[in-house]
Design a protein around this nucleic acid. Structure first.
Lengths: 144, 144, 144, 144
DNA sequence: GTGGTCTAGACCACC
DNA sequence: GTGGTCTAGACCACG
């Protein structure tokens, strides 16, 4: 298992920001317990296909936030996070995204029901994509 | 009636892009019939508190997309758009936002139900905000 | 070898358009193979004595046309162009100019022969200019 | 018969400039002898589908050049022009256009012969267009 | 009044 | 170093 980071090159969102958001989410969601060693800057650079400088900036930002800690010559590790802070961050990230989606929907005059409907459509398609990825030939698909 | 554009100065998203997204949504949602004159570059610049150049770029991009038409010395107008294209764009804008929200949610291991729940929470809070904005004196509106 | 761009400051034609036309011609004529790096925005701005913004616009327009590709922090490069499209563009540029010249000639009642004659005169003077530029010391070159 | 002016709305060349060039050519080529009355500003505006202000500017520029003369309440008339000046202007307009066409051609590495060939192609197509316009149903077409 | 072009210079993201 | 965004203000073309 390794950090699943998907970057959108054509987005107006800066690369470093996309990486930060996803890495922060990964840590905050408890998938990397305190003390876990992160990939080296150059590994992550290779993985994300961007320059080490960009990744270095990400690690530095997260260290300033107190999420990770760098030890000279040893590596970078997940720092101790308060459970409460973690929960808040975890929730916040999603709420913000949902708010901006709702804004977009209301702006073009979709009704609340339609928006909920569309969300469920997205969830469904994600579920199917996962299923076919997990069991590409199989039939015993999971419907969570 | 006038175009409600909200900019987030601290976002990493370029200003011109934020304006484009909202203006596109406004046009595509059918709130400005074909031929409607858009605010002049200078007006919109004042309204959004950014420079005329930035607005100019927005209008030019939208013209390249075929959504609007500009005539020197006359103004900028909503162009003819195929209904189908309009519907597609309208839906797309929201779906994309929802997809990125769902990604964010799944990434931090929220369940589908939790995400739907959060969406409804957002919708509820938006509804309340609207109600209190519409009836600031606090007549009977909100059923919090 | 470097891109020979001549601007006419007093022309009514916008600077960015003059640059575009010549740069497009240069690329389309195959003098810069796919992948060649173009001068940086700042370099070209200095070279053409206009602002970086103007050059930026040129590069962006050409990128929208698909002639070049820009990569942030890396540079601007000649894109892959279909041979056919390239030939068409190459020919078009000249035909349009010739058409407008012929229009001008016929409008003032020059005969076809006179126009061809004048064209040859222009070609001759260009040839001589080149010769004297190539051999400024006056070796043997020009056969005036 | 009336002044044949063709405007290209999408050209980067200003409208007023296009009109000036063609009107100047028309006068200078001797098609309007001294004293001939030009169409009124508002007539020409209607004819060219642009505003009277634009046409007024054209007339003013040509008057400053000494090509035409305006008499209050009477109209605008072709002024007396020296034969030599007229010939020079007549020739210049075409030579300039040819020069820019040759530049365009050489820039994309066409040979002199190819350019001459293309010119003749343009002349041929113009001749055919004229023929079919003059005798749309007929057969006794003119080949000059 | 409108849109169209251009400048000079700033700051940011990225390599 | 590269490209990307933005500003404040100027002047022109056009109605």
């Amino acid at each position: 298992m390794w950090i699943p980071i998907q970057l959108n090159e054509h987005s107006a969102e800066p690369l470093y920001h996309q990486i930060e958001v996803q890495l922060r989410a990964f840590i905050v969601s408890g998938q990397m317990p305190e003390g876990t060693m992160l990939p080296s800057i150059r590994e992550l650079a290779q993985l994300t296909k961007c320059s080490v400088i960009t990744v270095r900036r990400v690690y530095q930002d997260l260290e300033n936030e107190g999420l990770i800690r760098t030890r000279q010559g040893t590596g970078t590790f997940v720092a101790k996070v308060e459970d409460e802070a973690r929960d808040r961050q975890r929730r916040n990230a999603v709420m913000e995204a949902l708010e901006s989606a709702v804004d977009a929907g209301l702006r073009v005059h979709f009704g609340e029901d339609e928006i909920v409907e569309m969300l469920q459509e997205v969830l469904r398609s994600r579920r199917e994509a996962d299923a076919s990825a997990a069991a590409p030939g199989g039939e015993e698909a999971q419907h969570d």
